[in-house]
Design a protein around this nucleic acid. Structure first.
Lengths: 256, 256
DNA sequence: CCAAAAGTGTTTAAAATACACCCATGC
DNA sequence: GCATGGGTGTATTTTAAACACTTTTGG
């Protein structure tokens, strides 16, 4: 969406291009400064935040729509993506779009497909924070990361969607390795532990954590150490991609 | 759907009543004779089986639609229901509906909303086999239980949907008690074990299984024994509803 | 009396947990 | 030299796994 004309065309004729009544919302997780982050959009024409989302092109695979939307907002194509729930309450979008129409100078008597009811398919994505280029557009004045614990009240039912995504992520971390998608290529065990602690929302014992995570055999310890701060430098690790993929496929079982 | 007139009205004007492009498919699991069963519909006008499904009324909560559909097919209202995945491949319904239209004597040049692309929300349900009244209708000549291992090739992508439902169920059984929904009120430990073995698709040790399941403290052993066959009679158990609900909420962790 | 299935407990192995001291670094 | 955070191993407890004999019942 790059201009007012685009927007008007979208309001009036969007349903020729997109499947009506159906939307996609993406909860994009990143990890930075030992904090779990979510990428949100600040709307320009009305006051409020929302998840990045979009619609499914007629003829497009739903999963491909999610990848397309993620590409638009992050610039990334290789992304870990997981469908987690579909949201279908009849009043879930409230009247935010009517307000948007008013604020954008669109005739509110117009009968737009956008004012119909929408069912939204929720996907969460795990991305390398450092590689993301948050990208706003004509409709959104900002695209920015928020701490998972400092998420503002959002439009529609998007706070609920984030809650559910986090719940799914928490569940997933017991059965899959996840670090490959959220951390940069080279990272330290303390960082990885912080990632686990943030997602699980609890403290873990350092020694037991290392024992468990190393016993999976999916990590390579590099010669290098990371020089950070007035203390001993931690070792740098990277994932062994093959063994990581194998663990993903087989499934693992953490206890924590 | 009770008559040809109903059907024609549905084809032509269904989208006034229902949300277009969106459907619901239900994988209804039951347990009988120590076998896991799924309730399927045999179509009357064309040859083929499918999952029971339906559409979302405009204004209706999606979850309520699933309950409504389940009520129609089983007669039951109190059902354990779980959304598990949404299916959105563009060609997922194939050309089965065109064939149905032809076989039903509907003009195939008609532009029906039903011939559009559909995205389907998958729910699985767990029901007490003995309480279900499988109900067919004008479109379906049969509504019948099938062994999970003897499911015929189905219309649309319904075989894939059953696979995914089973995968989700398998996953769930490691974290929740499930027997309350699938077994009759009074049952034996061997029955319960068979249920677990069927869902997990593996044999379990009798003694270890009983230790584990009893240690949850959600079962009551009744005085009674069940007299079945030329051998020792097993004890009858029932669930302690309160403790069962608590275990559901807390979540449990089975290892098997 | 025989076949078929259910009841029951102990021993062993594996996994999770709890826990403390020393080391490297920057200021 | 001191504060901060990282590296490392062992002992204990808990949990899972392996395993066999006796009892009941119908035919």
């Amino acid at each position: 969406m790059e201009s007012e004309d685009d927007f008007k065309e979208f309001i009036i004729n969007g349903d020729k291009k997109f499947v009506p009544h159906l939307s996609i919302d993406c909860v994009i997780f990143g990890f930075h400064n030992n904090l779990l982050k979510v990428l949100l959009l600040k709307w320009g024409k009305i006051d409020g935040w929302s998840l990045p989302g979009g619609h499914v092109l007629r003829g497009e695979n739903v999963e491909d729509s999610a990848y397309r939307i993620l590409k638009e907002r992050t610039g990334l194509t290789e992304i870990y993506l997981q469908q987690f729930k579909t949201f279908g309450k009849p009043k879930r979008t409230g009247n935010a779009l009517e307000l948007l129409f008013k604020s954008s100078g669109v005739n509110t008597n117009i009968k737009s497909w956008l004012l119909d009811r929408f069912i939204s398919i929720g996907y969460y994505a795990l991305v390398d924070f450092s590689k993301v280029m948050p990208t706003a557009d004509w409709l959104s004045e900002k695209c920015a990361w928020h701490d998972i614990n400092k998420i503002p009240p959002m439009l529609f039912d998007h706070n609920e969607i984030v809650e559910e995504a986090l719940k799914s992520l928490k569940f997933a971390i017991y059965h899959q390795p996840l670090g490959y998608n959220l951390l940069p290529e080279r990272f330290t065990l303390p960082q990885l532990q912080k990632m686990y602690e943030t997602i699980l929302n609890k403290k873990l014992d350092r020694r037991n954590f290392q024992k468990k995570i190393l016993s999976l055999g999916i990590l390579n310890r590099l010669e290098e150490r990371m020089k950070i701060g007035p203390h001993r430098s931690p070792f740098v690790y990277s994932y062994n991609k093959e063994k990581y993929e194998a663990a993903l496929k087989e499934g693992i079982s953490f206890s924590f």
